[in-house]
């Protein structure tokens, strides 16, 4: 910076500087030192011009969010709700046989089967763990629940025809084609005692009369369709 330039500007404002210099000096009050000493002796170091407390959203937001988080945490982990809450890490998984027997009971077929299908020596038997009525408290540990389980043996009706088995390799290689064209595949019928299973499809005896009737119906529909189409074409040409 050019020093002479600033000095020149000092001269330019000489009058202003003089006015300011001539201002009367303002002194501290007479009791200034006394008051100061009193403050120091009393360790009163709180400043008279202390900082005003300014409102900050963070001062509200941070503790409030902490409180909400703590409430949520305590609710989910420490609540003693009357409802039975299933903890998937504490319950024994339901066995597949258990599920199937539940389905049988729900459909009403279970009783029928139980009467018809008493357990014989050659029958397929599955041992299942049945869960009794809960006598323990809801929040008991897993160990106490496991002890009350009981072992049951029951026969399970499987949708398999053990007399009709299929060699997989032969079926793929088409060497032993035992397929009966009259035997159409259908959905597995777990309840039907007449269902046969060849390893892939659940075969079913077909009613020939029914088939003939359906075929005739299809033929008549086709014939009607063709006649209509011819009529439309003839109408269009005219």
């Amino acid at each position: 910076m050019n020093k002479s330039g600033y000095n020149f500007k000092d001269d330019q404002f000489k009058d202003v500087s003089k006015i300011l210099k001539d201002l009367p000096k303002v002194n501290a009050p007479d009791n200034f030192e006394y008051n100061l000493k009193v403050k120091i002796d009393n360790n009163n170091f709180g400043l008279s011009t202390g900082n005003e407390k300014t409102f900050s959203w963070w001062k509200v937001f941070v503790p409030a969010s902490g409180l909400v988080a703590a409430s949520v945490f305590s609710f989910f982990f420490f609540s003693n709700s009357s409802e039975k809450l299933e903890n998937p890490f504490q319950l024994q998984p339901i066995l597949r046989t258990e599920i199937s027997s539940n389905i049988l009971n729900a459909t009403g077929l279970g009783n029928f089967l139980n009467e018809s299908y008493k357990i014989n020596d050659n029958d397929v038997v599955v041992e299942t763990i049945t869960k009794p009525e809960p006598t323990t408290k809801k929040n008991d540990l897993v160990a106490s629940e496991v002890k009350s389980y009981s072992l049951a043996r029951e026969k399970v009706v499987l949708p398999f025809d053990t007399s009709n088995s299929t060699d997989l390799d032969a079926a793929i290689g088409n060497k032993n084609n035992r397929r009966n064209i009259d035997r159409r595949a259908s959905l597995a019928n777990a309840g039907s005692p007449n269902a046969s299973f060849n390893g892939f499809y659940l075969g079913q005896e077909v009613d020939k009369k029914y088939v003939e009737a359906m075929k005739a119906r299809i033929d008549s529909l086709k014939k009607n369709y063709l006649i209509k189409r011819q009529q439309q074409r003839a109408g269009a040409i005219k």
């Binding site: 501290a28 009050p29 200034f32 403050k39 120091i40 400043l47 008279s48 011009t49």
Partner: peptide, 23 residues
């Protein structure tokens, strides 16, 4: 005191500020 008074323009508050400065 003179400096603070000329800056703020108030007598009372300037005394407090100078007191705080000394503290």
């Amino acid at each position: 005191t003179n400096y603070v008074f000329r800056f703020l323009g108030e007598r009372d508050i300037c005394t407090d500020i100078v007191q705080d400065t000394m503290i």
